Amino acid sequence: MVKIVAISLSDIAERAGVSVKTVSGALHGGSARMSDDTRLKIKSIAEELGYVTNLAARGVRQGWLPLVGVVSDGLITSPFATEIVRGLDGAARNAGMAVFAVNHSSGQEIGAVLDEVRQFRPRAVAYAAMYHKEVAVPQKLVGAVGVMINCREAEGRITSLVPDEQGGAREIVRYLLAAGRRRIAFINLPGIMAGVLREKGFHAALTEAGVAPLGVYPAVRRSVYSDRAPSLVASHVEALLHSGDRPDAILCGNDRVAMEVYAALARAGLCIPDDIAVASFDNQVELASRLDPPLTTMALPHRAMGRLAMEILLAGELQEPHLRTLPFHLVERASV
């Protein structure tokens, strides 16, 4: 059996001819002052000896480990999880930190999940949701969460980062109008915050341009949108095509709805965008880029939210809780 010998800070200090405090400062970002040459020398010796930071011991000294915990409200099952996690992880790595997530299942007490996260002694904790919604955090737990990602704390007691749903809708409608489209229908996502706010932006942009909407239609039969609910998309498209004022553009609540619109228009023998333009929200790249023609859509700012959340968590400065909206990004493809 090969015996693994743990290299200590004292071993490195002895080899480098400096104090243990200086070694700790070079390797762990402590307060010890030293020249760049000394810092590089210490890091070189540590690498040569195979030193690995003892995170448990460091956690005992500091009271926290170089970790950021994420309470994941359905995020792991979301196609956008990758973008939020990439934003978090990239900013964390730059600060010498790591990210871990614990899932918050429906019906599970948020306090129990936070306790599970905090037992790992993270430096900070974020709460991230798979879609834009309000989250009720008990008063006694408000101080345990540093930032909300893609959701908002119901009473505004925690800084929250959310997509600018109204602004995104205004931008895509203005884009359709600039392309010469004037008869625009909206097949929206009922019963969720994103749908409500996007509908406001939709109407605002049309009112601003002096154009009347052809209507807003729910994508599913249920009062709250779910991609598993019975779809109404095909019937809405058929009714619009047989109305006295056929649309020249259809805005869709998400890329899945847009895919159904594509299929309905194809069955009717119509061409996108020559007969009817189609635009959407989300930018699920594997879907939007593979539709024929590729779909023009508004990309959610998930990676930007992840990056900004990590910056807030690592800043270590107390801030007044606030709601910050981040802009969508228009992805122009061939459907408009």
Rank of each mutant, 00 (worst) to 15 (best):
I192L: 14
E155K: 12
G195I: 13
R198M: 08
R174H: 10
E155N: 13
V135A: 06
P138D: 10
A136G: 03
R152F: 01
G167Q: 12
A194H: 03
E153D: 15
I184E: 01
I158Y: 03
V137D: 00
R152Q: 13
V173P: 05
D164G: 14
G143W: 01
G180T: 03
Q139S: 14
A136I: 13
L141M: 09
V142R: 10
R157Y: 05
R170H: 07
D164R: 09
V142L: 13
I172D: 04
A169E: 10
R198E: 10
A194E: 09
C151M: 08
A169V: 12
L197G: 00
Y175P: 00
I187D: 02
E155H: 11
Y175D: 05
K200S: 15
N188R: 03
A144H: 11
R198L: 12
A194F: 03
R170M: 15
L177A: 04
A179H: 14
A136C: 06
L189S: 08
L161K: 12
D164P: 10
P163F: 09
R182Y: 03
C151Y: 04
G156R: 08
G167N: 11
I149G: 01
Y175Q: 02
R157G: 03
L197S: 06
V162I: 15
R157K: 15
E155S: 11
P163V: 11
A179Y: 00
I149T: 02
V142A: 10
V135D: 07
P163E: 08
A178M: 03
G156M: 08
V196Q: 13
E165Q: 15
P163W: 06
C151T: 05
N150D: 14
E171P: 00
I172H: 07
G167T: 06
R182K: 15
A136M: 11
E134P: 00
V147C: 14
I184K: 02
A154E: 12
D164F: 13
G156T: 06
L141W: 08
I172E: 05
I172P: 04
I184M: 03
L189C: 07
G156P: 05
A169D: 10
K200G: 09
L161S: 12
I192N: 08
V147T: 07
G195A: 11
N188M: 03
M193N: 09
R174A: 01
E153F: 07
I184P: 02
M148H: 02
L197T: 06
I172S: 04
P190E: 09
C151F: 07
V173L: 12
P163T: 08
R170K: 15
I149F: 00
P190D: 09
I184N: 01
R157C: 05
S160R: 07
E171W: 01
G195K: 09
P163D: 12
V142C: 05
T159M: 06
Q166T: 10
L161C: 12
